[in-house]
Design a binder for these strands. Structure first.
Length: 732
DNA sequence: GGCTGTACTTAGAAAACAAAGA
DNA sequence: TCTTTGTTTTCTAAGTACAGCC
């Protein structure tokens, strides 16, 4: 079985794209089973533990909120008083425990050299290189200063900016990596930005209960506005959502409110909803100046809180704003949808930074939960969320060294898999014959993960999340076996909800041994029983670790996605094509991967309309072309009769016009094809997470395609390492 | 080997923004 | 200049993986 074959096994039409809940009956069945399981099971206990914790937390929260000493200024969301400035790029004067001083900036390793990507020992930087870099940095800062001065001509600024920004980018990939485990040596940041405090509704905005106006307490009103803002959303019609919301809302009510408001269906939020809609409208109608003001404010916030200093470099933070309170919106059939996501206070926040840094001060009158100095982790701020009890983090942007290095490493691991994948495939094929059930299950599951790019499928806490599965957690009800189907032998029909409750539906012919094994695994089982009852992700990954260092189930997805892109690009790119046609080929290769990985999206609401618009543009262009051709014809006839220079020239210019219109038409047609094929497929997820960017960069270089045509600004920032290092002959 | 907690990547929807068209 | 449409960015949920404990 070749990878190429794999893809062809999977024509776009083979996967039916349907979003959302499609199998109520089986889900219900499963849930019922879980309910009975819970009665004596340990997970119930765990759940209770969670509940108690949540209760406690909410109690604490109430106390805090009612203490009334919370004053968060609007201008200084973080409550900081005159925050210290961070330099754009710290001077190289060693005032931080700098990795530069003791690390040698190596020339980047060749791809092949890097194959096993092990952190090397940090070496002492030689003086020459240190000097050189110092010089460069000084030049950078000079350039920056010059740029700041040059504010008189924004036009000129615009033109110069990109180049200069390019120049001053730090090429971390040319430097030595830290030993494993150590993530940084110096870390300083300004802490998080908290959600703005609740602003009570104006007096004239009413809430009605049972047809009568009712004035709500501030806390109850705030939660009510969360619901009112979602009134147009399908969520608010769902029973679970309404139930969860109402339960949590009541907790925020005064005892008086609680005794009055006993039924959600008697609550009328429409006036509130209208008010918010009007506000949205008003925001759209704001004057240019007002909009500009908001924009500047956001920029200021970003400038102040959006960056940290990590090891002598200013790095962008991905999410420096704390998630605001609101109603939890789970995906798919989530049992907790509608629950209240509580407001996060400084007392919930753990700050992580280095000992010798300036610890961000908490907002006045508040304390951080904890300040720690752990350089074995990459996060700057964390807190525990109240819906699942999980930890949330503030981390760096994908363009940062710390994320980029990891990303690079991920693709190197996938490339190592390439070298031994044949051996692994032979091995699991052997294992299909094993005497041990566990080994057979492992081998069949691995075959699916490899062939179909399924996710590993960790076990999930029942009743805590939507009922979704991956490979190891597939249940009998998720597959159907067809000894023969549509002229093919041994077809397995998959139908299950995967991550984010996206449906995976696929009919796949498999090898006879796999088929027979599946029949064996399903013997004497109920639909809701696990297909691979002797297997879980931990067992599988332990096995994979023995086959190759660093190998886990998800590496197969990365490997298969990247190798597919590379093969498809080779196959689909026609050297004679013009640039738009080549880009169409690229998108098609990208699409093949997205289909493999089952990356779907809801078709855009305006899809049909925009398609029609495009078609009418094409029709108009066709007419234009016909006209132009007629004109050319008559010009030719004219020239034949007159035989002068002027009419000859006229023919030439008409010819050019025809050519130009032909090109325009072709571009439009390509666009239409691309869009149609993309209707339900999301390309960005694979582009961002599964495709070794060096493949794309090499392809661009080989065919003279500007990199901007396939990566936008953010993507170019994330993949700066690949853009810098990949040559046109790069092989994944 | 199971359980729990933690850290990190991957994911699609929605909001914000920019460009094109009227 | 205003409106529509398409693209990018933001947001945060939902996965994977693994360490450490019993």
């Amino acid at each position: 079985m070749t990878c190429n074959g794999r893809l062809l096994d999977l024509p776009a039409t083979a996967i039916t794209f349907v979003l959302g809940e499609h199998k109520d009956s089986s889900e219900k069945k499963h849930k019922d089973k879980e309910k009975t399981k819970h009665k004596d099971g340990s997970s119930e206990k765990h759940k209770d533990k969670h509940k108690d914790k949540d209760k406690e937390k909410r109690k604490e929260e109430k106390i805090k909120l009612s203490s009334g000493d919370i004053k968060i200024k609007k201008e200084k969301e973080n409550g900081f008083s005159s925050p210290p400035r961070i330099k754009d790029e710290p001077d190289d004067d060693g005032f931080y425990a700098s990795p530069k001083e003791d690390s040698k900036p190596l020339k980047r390793p060749r791809e092949d050299d890097d194959a096993d990507y092990k952190p090397k020992k940090i070496k002492t930087e030689d003086v020459k290189k240190a000097k050189k870099r110092k010089q460069e940095e000084e030049e950078d800062s000079k350039a920056k200063k010059a740029k700041n001065k040059d504010k008189k001509s924004p036009e000129a600024d615009k033109r110069k900016k990109p180049k200069k920004e390019e120049e001053q980018k730090w090429k971390w990939w040319e430097e030595e990596r830290y030993p494993e485990g150590i993530k940084w040596k110096f870390l300083e940041h300004k802490g998080p930005v908290f959600a703005p405090p609740y602003e009570p509704l104006p007096e004239n905005v009413k809430f009605y209960y049972d047809g009568k106006v009712m004035k709500l307490s501030t806390k109850a009103e705030e939660v009510a506005t969360f619901f009112a803002k979602m009134l147009d959303h399908e969520y608010t019609t769902k029973e679970i959502f309404r139930k969860n919301f109402f339960k949590d809302w009541r907790k925020e009510m005064t005892s008086e409110e609680k005794s009055t408001i006993t039924s959600l269906s008697k609550c009328d939020f429409t006036h509130m909803s209208q008010y918010f809609k009007a506000q949205t409208e008003a925001r759209k109608q704001m004057s240019k100046e007002e909009k500009q003001k908001i924009k500047e404010e956001n920029e200021r916030l970003l400038k102040e809180y959006g960056y940290c200093v990590m090891d002598n470099h200013k790095e962008r933070i991905a999410n420096f704003k704390i998630e605001p309170p609101g109603l939890f919106r789970g995906r798919g059939n989530h049992p907790k949808m509608g629950m209240l996501k509580r407001r996060i206070m400084p007392e919930d926040i753990i700050i992580n930074c280095s000992k010798d840094s300036k610890v961000p001060p908490p907002p006045p009158g508040h304390k951080w939960k904890e300040v720690r100095h752990d350089n074995k982790v990459t996060w700057l701020v964390s807190w525990t969320e109240n819906i699942q009890g999980s930890i949330k983090y503030i981390m760096l942007n994908p363009s940062s060294r710390i994320k980029g290095e990891k990303d690079w490493q991920k693709y190197e691991t996938a490339r190592r898999l390439k070298k031994c994948v044949d051996k692994i495939r032979n091995q699991y094929r052997e294992d299909w014959k094993s005497k041990e059930m566990k080994v057979r299950q492992r081998a069949v599951a691995l075959y699916f993960i490899d062939k179909l790019a399924l996710r590993a499928g960790n076990e999930k806490e029942e009743g805590e999340t939507a009922d979704t599965v991956g490979c190891c957690s597939l249940r009998v009800e998720h597959i159907k076996l067809h000894p023969e189907l549509d002229g093919q032998e041994y077809v397995v029909e998959f139908d299950f909800l995967g991550k984010d409750s996206i449906r995976y539906y696929n009919k796949v012919p498999v090898e006879k041994r796999v088929f027979k094994n599946l029949q064996l695994f399903m013997e004497n089982k109920q639909p809701e029983d696990d297909l691979f009852d002797r297997l879980n992700t931990s067992i599988l990954n332990k096995h994979l670790q023995d086959l190759m260092e660093g190998l886990t189930a998800k590496v197969f997805r990365t490997y298969n996605a990247s190798i597919t892109l590379q093969q498809q690009l080779k196959e689909l790119t026609n050297p004679d094509d013009n640039i738009p046609a080549k880009i169409l080929s690229y998108n098609r290769a990208n699409r093949a991967v997205a289909i493999l990985c089952n990356h779907q999206r809801a078709p855009p609401k305006t899809f049909e309309k925009s398609m029609m618009n495009l078609q009418s543009k094409i029709d108009a262009k066709k007419e234009q072309l016909a006209d132009a051709r007629r004109e050319l014809k008559s010009a030719k006839a004219d020239a034949k009769v007159r035989r002068d220079e002027k009419s000859k020239k006229a023919v030439e210019s008409k010819k050019k016009a025809v050519q130009r219109i032909e090109e325009q038409l072709m571009k439009l047609e390509v666009q239409a094809t691309d869009r149609e094929e993309n209707k339900q497929i999301a390309l960005s997820t694979s582009k961002l997470n599964y495709l070794d960017p060096r493949i794309s960069v090499a392809w661009c270089k080989k065919w003279g395609i500007p990199i901007e045509k396939i990566y936008n600004k953010t993507q170019r920032e994330k993949f700066a390492w690949a853009i810098d290092m990949a040559e046109e002959d790069y092989e994944f």
